[in-house]
């Protein structure tokens, strides 16, 4: 096992830890490492670090390790962990915040998931609503998998479940302004 120099790491991690704590409102120090979050997590089977391990890394100030993990991207935000935590730590909120900060720092362990969410929000900013067909086509093209799930297309269209053109809302200027106002306040969208 790799040796980790904890004292130095602790000092180095403090700045990011403070950022995570401020943005999430979650105090990682409350966690007593019982592992209930991991036991109930429906995605734990696919994670490189379990939710409990992520909490421990944050407690120790080993922020880069937490921010570079796949786990924070694979979390499905289902809230099972936060619902069951005996210490009432909002682990799902911690995952969400780590992911936002990881992206800000350029650590994107799951590029396709990141692409999907970027395209989703672009569609919302442009039209006011998400255009599902456009989102999937964009995701397939930019994700270099042009035929992924393509077999669903024809029947979806026939059933009236996909619209070829986006629905743009009349008051879309308001939605564009929301995005602009969030950016003005420092939001990286």
């Amino acid at each position: 096992m790799e040796r980790i120099e904890l004292t130095a790491a602790w000092a180095e991690g403090q700045e990011v830890l403070a950022e995570v704590t401020k943005e999430s409102g979650v105090r990682a120090s409350k966690c007593y490492q019982c592992g209930k979050c991991t036991a109930g997590c429906p995605v734990a089977f696919a994670m490189d670090k379990t939710p409990r391990e992520i909490m421990r890394l944050v407690q120790l100030g080993l922020m880069d390790e937490a921010l570079q993990s796949q786990t924070i991207w694979l979390c499905a935000s289902c809230d099972t962990c936060s619902t069951r935590c005996p210490r009432e730590v909002d682990i799902a909120r911690m995952m969400e915040t780590l992911r936002i900060i990881a992206k800000r720092k350029g650590f994107v362990a799951e590029k396709k998931m990141d692409l999907f969410h970027d395209l989703f929000l672009k569609s919302v900013e442009k039209n006011g609503r998400v255009h599902e067909l456009g989102l999937i086509l964009g995701f397939n093209i930019y994700g270099m998998q042009p035929l992924k799930d393509a077999h669903f297309g024809p029947s979806m269209l026939l059933k009236g479940k996909l619209s070829p053109l986006p629905h743009t809302i009349k008051d879309n200027g308001e939605v564009k302004k929301i995005f602009a106002n969030v950016r003005k306040r420092g939001g990286k969208l």
């Binding site: 936002i100 609503r129 809302i169 008051d171 929301i178 995005f179 969030v182 939001g187």
Partner: peptide, 25 residues
Amino acid sequence: PEWNCCGASSAHLTDHLLALALPAR
């Protein structure tokens, strides 16, 4: 009338304020 997308489930993984503002309208 002219409701907008609430941002689920992409906004809350991108920016907390955006995630609150989209449903708020």
